[in-house]
Design a protein around this nucleic acid. Structure first.
Lengths: 212, 212
DNA sequence: GGCATTACTGACCACTGGGTCATTTGCGGA
DNA sequence: TCCGCAAATGACCCAGTGGTCAGTAATGCC
């Protein structure tokens, strides 16, 4: 998902484009950081991807860390912005809402770029508590609230039976995170069957496991 | 979790102990790799922890990578060995078995050293497909089989209702993995309440979420 | 066209850290 | 006690990389 995306098409000629640079550098940075993480990322390579000299990066960002922060920040809002599409508004049974929410979650989290971001933050989040907080707010926090609302409404409608699991909605989406983790670790050796897994996840939510 | 653990108590005196060295170096390596991961680990620091000179490491291991592999291998079998204690043998209802299995899982995975191992492999597993395979076999594979047996027996007893979730037992333990992931990422900023979470997990298994 | 401004360059610096090896030192045997 | 070997040392080597800066050239103004 990288390659020669945003460089001047023709020319080995130098161009002065002060206002376009930062975004280009950030784009190159995102692709680099996604692929190699923070430590593994290489400034010379980022410069190459952006079609500029290494020194130019330092005209716009004071350090590798600063570029990383800017890139992550940009990436988070881009990735999260997409998934904004008002879910809570949709009418339907709780099961329909949940299914839709989960499909959406899996789509971005398992196949999309959200997974790379997750991987980076999981691996190297220690170095940037601020970013971690933002990330938490935009994912866990927001998703949790949304889920709680859906479930609360479900209880009112008699579609959901109250219980501890509703106050800790984490457990409801946990299997999706597990799927992402499993994919990251084992995709090359022991990949999971997506359809089966998704069905099992839904089944768990619908009826639990133990007979009553 | 490191510090001056396993060095010769007294002395700045050099000692020749060919047979004890590898284990000491591995021990120091484990602690270092746990704290910094592979890339972040520093050979000089490992040597210091082991109470030897850097060069000595290379008398026993040809490279940083080799030491890492040896350390991980040792660590995996130590961590996994502990949890061997035959669970499948215990008599009791399916719910009791599941509860016990989960308690055990949480205990090692959330508080124990298994989490550090998980974190390393998740972050830097790409570089070592062999280790990843081993890890998969010793955790996912084995745990999955165990869980399938428990659930199958539960079905026979009429304690478990059959369904897709039983063929993908991943979803059953997924919340535990989620907890570990959440802990790794957010322990300093947004820690979860363990007891509540555990209860919610169990609740999910017992009765699902949606009313029938 | 000439000039001032400044975006841009890339050779260079400084430092880190994995890996080497000539030298030193502990130790067992004669 | 002395010798020879192998264990251990740590100064050194060098590749990789974040960061610098004197010089270059694009651009806009007169």
């Amino acid at each position: 998902m990288t390659k020669e995306a945003g460089k001047t098409p023709e020319s080995t000629k130098v161009r002065r484009r002060k206002d376009a640079r930062p975004a280009e550098i950030i784009a190159a940075g995102i692709s680099e950081f996604e692929e190699y993480g923070f430590r593994g990322a290489n400034l010379a390579r980022i410069a190459k991807k952006a079609g500029i000299a290494k020194g130019t990066i330092y005209l716009y960002f004071p350090s590798k860390e600063a570029l990383f922060l800017a890139a992550i920040e940009t990436h988070i809002s881009s990735v999260m912005g997409e998934s904004e599409a008002g879910l809570a508004e949709v009418e339907g049974t709780t099961q329909e809402l949940l299914t839709q929410l989960l499909r959406n979650l899996y789509a971005r989290f398992v196949h999309g770029e959200a997974q790379a971001l997750f991987h980076i933050l999981l691996s190297e989040g220690d170095r940037m508590p601020g970013v971690i907080s933002d990330y938490h707010a935009m994912t866990v926090q927001r998703g949790g609230t949304l889920l709680k609302n859906i479930l609360a409404r479900g209880v009112e409608r008699g579609e959901v039976t109250p219980g501890p699991a509703l106050e800790t909605p984490h457990v409801v989406i946990a299997p999706a995170v597990y799927f992402a983790v499993h994919t990251i670790m084992f995709k090359n050796t022991q990949p999971l069957d997506y359809d089966k897994y998704f069905e099992a996840h839904l089944d768990l939510l619908v009826r639990g496991v133990l007979a009553r």
